[in-house]
């Protein structure tokens, strides 16, 4: 803990002026905005008649102009879009040190290499949490402005934990990306991995085996497959993937030859 606090302060300092922070928040706000557009279209028959593609999409998603539908959309955005945006955050946080050439300056310090990585993981977790909260806040604001019928308490009690758990399940998948960022010495390897997992997540989920592919699990849990219940093995597999990613990251950072 003695070493973690200065490492955390240093990590927060590093991100002080990073424009990438705002880019991720803007990107993540697209989902609630899109939900708001669906609500507008479904409410206005004239616009609905002109926007056949969006109407078809809204109907395909079984979207209706109420809070359960809107919160469901936001949750699914975290489960699917989060893999991309959280993945982008992890790629940047861990890959930037090599891209900026500063990795070599972090390896012979009184603050241990492990503490520096743990500080990065904490900042990553906080960043993902802030994105999820902002997604919810923008959604709440838009839903209120669009005068959706007032939500009832049982709905919130049911939907908010699913939202929180979807965020957690998506965020913990960032650890393998940290490894790829260090191993690939930059952003490219982890971003390539994110793109691959997104494609595979869609294909594997479509074939019905998504519950056994960790990167499909958050999306399925969020309700994309029609329900939230998944076999216990799905969560275990996801947890093992995350732990393996964390372990590999620590091992590589502590034991590999740092030639760049």
């Amino acid at each position: 803990m003695n070493a973690l606090l200065p490492a955390l302060k240093a990590e927060l300092l590093k991100n002080r002026h990073a424009s990438i922070v705002w880019v991720t928040f803007v990107a993540f706000a697209l989902a609630p905005v899109m939900g708001g557009v669906f609500i507008l279209i479904l409410r206005e028959p004239e616009i609905m008649a002109q926007s056949s593609a969006l109407r078809a999409k809204a109907q395909l998603m079984d979207f209706s102009t109420d809070w359960p539908s809107y919160l469901g959309l936001l949750t699914q955005a975290v489960g699917v879009g989060g893999v991309l945006v959280f993945g982008f955050v992890a790629s940047w946080l861990f890959g930037r040190e090599h891209s900026d050439g500063t990795a070599k300056d972090l390896l012979a310090l009184p603050t241990s290499r492990t503490a520096i990585l743990n500080a990065k993981f904490i900042v990553y977790g906080l960043w993902c949490l802030a994105l999820a909260v902002s997604n919810l806040a923008v959604g709440t604001l838009l839903g209120t402005l669009l005068q959706l019928p007032a939500p009832d308490l049982p709905l919130l009690r049911h939907q908010l934990p699913i939202y929180a758990l979807t965020t957690l399940l998506t965020a913990v998948l960032g650890t393998p990306l940290a490894f790829f960022a260090l191993w690939g010495k930059g952003y490219l390897a982890p971003l390539g991995f994110v793109a691959l997992t997104l494609v595979f997540a869609q294909v594997i989920a479509a074939t019905g085996f998504g519950s056994y592919f960790p990167w499909s699990v958050p999306g399925l849990f969020s309700g994309l497959g029609g329900g939230n219940a998944l076999p216990t093995g799905s969560y275990l597999l996801l947890l093992l993937t995350s732990l393996a990613g964390y372990g590999a990251t620590l091992f590589y950072w502590n034991h590999a030859d740092h030639t760049k």
Partner: peptide, 16 residues
């Protein structure tokens, strides 16, 4: 994206 002072503050923290 950090200034000279801010860059040094990072290592000031890491060197405790």
């Amino acid at each position: 994206d950090l200034s000279v002072v801010e860059n040094l503050q990072v290592y000031y923290q890491l060197r405790r």
